[in-house]
Lab assay of single mutants.
Amino acid sequence: TELRLDINGREIKVDGADKETLKELLKLAEKNNDEKAIRIIRHLLER
């Protein structure tokens, strides 16, 4: 399955993203107070 998050109005594919990319996405999600995106990205970073 493909995991996509809508961050800042942009749909971004997050599964398969490297750790650096995920960290950047996490910063974006935190800036937007997007709890769902934050939770998902943190979960991916823990893998």
Rank of each mutant, 00 (worst) to 15 (best):
E2P: 05
K23H: 10
A37R: 01
K13S: 12
L25N: 00
E35Y: 13
K13P: 06
R10T: 14
K23Y: 14
E20V: 10
A37K: 01
N8Q: 04
N8T: 03
R4I: 15
K27S: 07
L3P: 09
R4K: 11
D6R: 15
R42N: 05
T21G: 09
K27G: 06
E46K: 14
R4Q: 14
K27V: 09
N33W: 08
L22I: 04
V14F: 06
A29N: 00
E20G: 08
G16E: 12
E30G: 05
K19E: 11
E24W: 15
N32A: 14
I12F: 15
I40D: 02
E30W: 13
D15C: 05
I40W: 08
L5N: 03
G16F: 12
D6Y: 15
D18K: 04
K13E: 10
L3T: 12
K23G: 06
T21P: 01
I40P: 00
T1W: 14
K19Q: 11
E11F: 09
L3Y: 08
T1E: 14
I40T: 08
A37M: 04
L45R: 01
G9M: 02
L44W: 15
K36C: 05
K31Y: 10
N32H: 15
L45C: 02
K23A: 09
L5P: 06
G16S: 13
L25Y: 09
R42F: 08
H43P: 04
E30H: 11
K27Y: 13
E2F: 12
R47N: 10
K19P: 07
N33R: 10
I40F: 13
E24L: 14
G16Q: 11
E46I: 13
A17G: 12
I7G: 02
G9H: 02
K23L: 11
E11Q: 08
L22S: 00
D6H: 15
N8A: 11
T21A: 13
I12D: 02
A29G: 01
L26F: 06
I38K: 04
L26K: 02
T1V: 07
R39H: 08
D15W: 09
D6K: 14
I41P: 00
K27M: 11
L25Q: 01
L5A: 03
V14E: 01
E35R: 09
R47K: 08
T21I: 09
G16W: 12
A29S: 04
E2Y: 10
T21H: 08
N33E: 07
E35W: 14
R47L: 12
L44T: 05
K31V: 12
R4N: 11
D34C: 04
A17S: 12
E30I: 13
I12H: 13
T21M: 12
N33K: 09
K36E: 10
G9T: 01
N32I: 11
L25I: 06
E20A: 09
D18H: 03
K36P: 10
D6I: 15
I38F: 07
K27W: 11
L45P: 00
R39L: 13
E46T: 14
K36A: 11
L3A: 07
G16I: 15
I38Y: 11
E35P: 07
E24H: 12
K13F: 14
R39G: 06
T1A: 09
E46F: 15
L44F: 14
D34R: 01
K36Y: 12
N33I: 05
I41R: 00
E2A: 05
K27E: 08
E11W: 14
H43C: 08
R4H: 14
R39M: 14
L45N: 00
E46V: 12
R39S: 09
E2D: 13
A17K: 10
L28I: 09
L28G: 02
R42M: 10
I38P: 00
R39V: 09
A29Q: 00
L28P: 00
I7Q: 02
I38S: 07
E24S: 13
A37T: 05
E2Q: 09
V14S: 02
D18N: 07
A29Y: 04
E11D: 05
K19A: 07
K36N: 12
I12V: 12
E11S: 07
L25H: 02
E20N: 07
L45Q: 02
T21F: 10
A17D: 12
K31R: 11
K31W: 13
I38E: 04
A17I: 06
E46G: 14
K36G: 08
E11G: 03
D18Y: 03
I40S: 04
L26C: 02
K31T: 08
K27I: 10
E46Q: 13
R10Y: 13
N8H: 02
T1N: 14
E35L: 11
D34V: 04
L5W: 02
K19Y: 08
E11L: 11
E2K: 05
D15F: 08
A29P: 00
E30N: 07
E30C: 08
L26N: 00
A37G: 03
L3H: 14
L25E: 01
A37L: 07
R4F: 14
E24N: 10
K13I: 14
R39Q: 10
R42L: 12
R47S: 11
E20T: 08
L26T: 00
I12E: 05
E11P: 06
V14C: 02
A17H: 08
E46S: 14
R10I: 14
I41W: 01
I41N: 00
L22C: 01
L25W: 09
R39T: 09
N33P: 02
E2V: 06
D34L: 06
L5M: 05
K13T: 13
N32D: 09
G16C: 05
K19D: 08
L5Q: 03
K13C: 04
E20K: 09
A29L: 05
V14M: 04
L3E: 13
L45Y: 02
L28A: 05
D34M: 04
E24A: 14
R42Y: 07
E30K: 13
D34E: 08
I38N: 01
I40H: 03
H43R: 14
R39Y: 14
K13N: 12
K19C: 04
D15A: 06
R42E: 04
D34G: 01
K13V: 14
K36M: 11
R47Y: 14
D6E: 15
D15E: 06
E20D: 10
D6Q: 15
T21D: 03
I12W: 15
G9K: 01
K13R: 11
T1I: 07
E20F: 10
E30M: 14
E11Y: 08
L5H: 02
L22K: 00
N32F: 15
D15G: 06
I38D: 01
V14H: 02
G9L: 03
A17C: 05
L28F: 08
G16L: 13
E11M: 06
R10C: 06
K27L: 11
R10F: 13
A17P: 03
L22D: 00
N32R: 04
